[in-house]
Simulated scan of single mutants.
Amino acid sequence: MIGLFFWMLTLAGCGYAAMLGGREGRWAACLIISASLLTIPATRLGAHWARSELGVMSVDAALLVGLYVLSLRSRRYFPIWMAGFHLVAVATHLGTLIAPDFTPRIYRALASLWAVPMTVCMVLGVALDRGLTRSDRGDRASDPQG
């Protein structure tokens, strides 16, 4: 049930961002969908969360780099917030390398949890940016100085 909720949220959020989020939204959606799909085989290759999932950690690290680069090149704020949320997920993986006695269920939950606020942040960021853009256009249209 949780997996179904994750995929519904991810596909709906990424679809919205890809259609209405401009260049940044399309890149963010592409990064999230790619990482989500690559996580499936990476999870199957791992130790079933009994110890550090190096494959999933690699996918998450690559996503973090992609989000970081996107945030550097963007004029929007939501990629920065997405990178920040995802940094916590990557830190969870690093924590299991330092303290390998993590309970597998807690490790999996902590590593996966941050995908939801990251996706919600992307959707809210795109929505807020669209609202600001619309109000900017309205302000310019009513301004006689143009």
Rank of each mutant, 00 (worst) to 15 (best):
L94E: 05
L94Q: 10
L94G: 02
G95E: 02
G95D: 01
G95Q: 07
G95L: 03
G95W: 00
T96N: 07
T96D: 08
L97T: 00
L97Q: 06
L97N: 08
L97Y: 08
I98R: 05
I98V: 14
A99T: 00
A99S: 06
A99H: 11
P100A: 05
P100I: 01
P100M: 02
P100R: 03
P100C: 02
D101E: 11
D101H: 09
D101V: 03
D101F: 14
F102V: 10
F102P: 00
T103F: 14
T103K: 15
T103E: 07
T103G: 14
T103L: 15
P104G: 08
P104E: 04
R105E: 13
R105G: 11
I106H: 13
I106Y: 13
Y107N: 13
Y107S: 07
Y107A: 03
Y107P: 11
Y107E: 01
A109P: 15
A109L: 09
A109S: 14
L110G: 05
A111M: 08
A111D: 02
S112Y: 00
S112R: 08
S112C: 01
L113V: 09
L113E: 04
L113S: 14
L113Y: 06
W114H: 05
W114P: 01
A115H: 11
A115P: 03
A115F: 10
A115D: 04
V116K: 07
V116R: 01
P117A: 02
M118L: 12
M118S: 06
M118T: 09
V120H: 01
V120Y: 04
V120L: 12
V120N: 08
V120K: 10
C121V: 09
M122R: 06
V123P: 05
V123N: 05
V123Q: 01
V123M: 05
V123L: 00
V123D: 02
G125W: 01
G125Q: 01
G125E: 00
V126E: 00
V126I: 01
V126L: 07
A127L: 12
L128H: 06
L128N: 09
L128V: 11
L128F: 10
D129N: 02
D129R: 00
R130W: 10
R130C: 04
R130A: 08
G131H: 12
G131S: 08
G131E: 02
L132Y: 10
T133K: 15
T133W: 13
R134W: 02
R134I: 13
S135Q: 15
S135R: 14
S135P: 10
D136T: 12
D136N: 10
D136G: 08
R137F: 11
G138V: 15
G138D: 15
D139I: 10
D139A: 09
D139S: 11
D139Q: 12
R140P: 02
R140I: 14
R140K: 12
R140H: 05
R140C: 08
A141M: 11
A141N: 12
A141E: 07
S142K: 08
